[in-house]
Amino acid sequence: MATTESTAAGVGPVEGGSLYDVDHPAPFIEAPRKRTKKTPKSTRGNFEMAAWLFMRLSGVVLVVLVLGHLLIQLVLDGGVSKIGFAFVAGRWASPFWQVWDLLMLWLAMLHGANGLRTVVNDYAERANTRLWLKGLLYTATVFTILLGTLVIFTFDPNIR
């Protein structure tokens, strides 16, 4: 009733010509996904929950902030051609737009950084890779947030 194609290489009965015997045991296969003593201790903080909640809440706020930003910058009142130093200076004269942009900067950067953190956690397999990728990510995030905040607060419209 049944035929099989010739036995694939590397598979076959162990009896007879086995590569291994008592003196040459088969290599022990380490289970890579086990909870062992080396596995990092479990955390009992609320950080992951806070991060999860932050993603949802900041996402809702960012929809308004970013879409409003894009509408003002790119669509209304002449579109992108109107944007120049004078346009930015005029907008940042108002505290409302300062707060808008500051909020957008912080929320977007933290939202994106946290998203990338979960991507690194999900995809980087080696502890060292994770460490370096996350280190790079956090450095870039902190740098961008601080630089942006500095610019918003110290912006000088009369700069030469």
Binding site: T7, A8, A9, G10, V11, G12, L19, Y20, A26, P27
Partner: peptide
């Protein structure tokens, strides 16, 4: 079969 090969292989049966 770890005692024969470290690699897994596809085998067809009809």
């Amino acid at each position: 079969n770890p005692e024969v090969s470290a690699e897994a292989v596809w085998e067809d049966f009809q």
